[in-house]
């Protein structure tokens, strides 16, 4: 076993995703570079990744969210950008994890609409909406399943 010396200790990395008709990932990256002050920013096809001290990353994200408040999504990342254990340049093929992002970005338009609508709601309306039950298709009854199996 060889010793492991970590890099970028004390930093955090955050993903910034954008799904907007007005703002492109390039705009996001450019806006981030403008106030970066030495913070590591990596432009990606979905937005950018920001690595630095928690205060600096927070500062840049607050600035980016003003560009399109309802359509910018942010989450933590464990690895810094370009890490040889995760980066496609080293591994080849698709990077594990993007499947989840792809799935959730398909739903982002519903969340954006939800954020816009709930921001216009009064407290009472919000409470009523929050308590609404969303109808779900019923699960297959176990007895029906059993009868189907017996028919086979």
């Amino acid at each position: 076993m060889k010793p492991y010396v970590p890099q970028y200790v004390g930093t955090i990395t955050k993903y910034v995703f954008v799904d907007s008709p007005d703002i492109t990932p390039q705009d996001i990256a450019t806006a981030a570079y403008e106030i970066a002050q030495g913070i590591m920013i990596k432009e990606t096809c979905f937005g950018c990744q920001i690595t630095g001290s928690p205060e600096d990353v927070e500062r840049i994200i607050n600035h980016l969210q003003k560009l399109d408040p309802y359509r910018i999504y942010v989450k933590d990342r464990g690895f810094p950008p370009g890490d040889a254990r995760r980066c496609r340049a080293d591994l080849g093929g698709a990077r594990p994890g993007y499947l989840g992002h792809e799935y959730e970005m398909d739903l982002a338009r519903y969340i954006t609409y939800g954020l816009q609508e709930t921001d216009r709601m009064t407290n009472e309306k919000l409470k009523i909406t929050a308590d609404q039950k969303v109808p779900r298709p019923e699960m297959l009854d176990i007895e029906i399943l059993e009868s189907l199996m017996k028919e086979e």
């Binding site: 969340i111 939800g114 609508e117 709601m121 929050a130 609404q132 969303v134």
Partner: peptide
């Protein structure tokens, strides 16, 4: 979209 509103709310 409607479920999105309920989800966020």
């Amino acid at each position: 979209k409607e479920e999105g509103v309920t989800f966020v709310a």
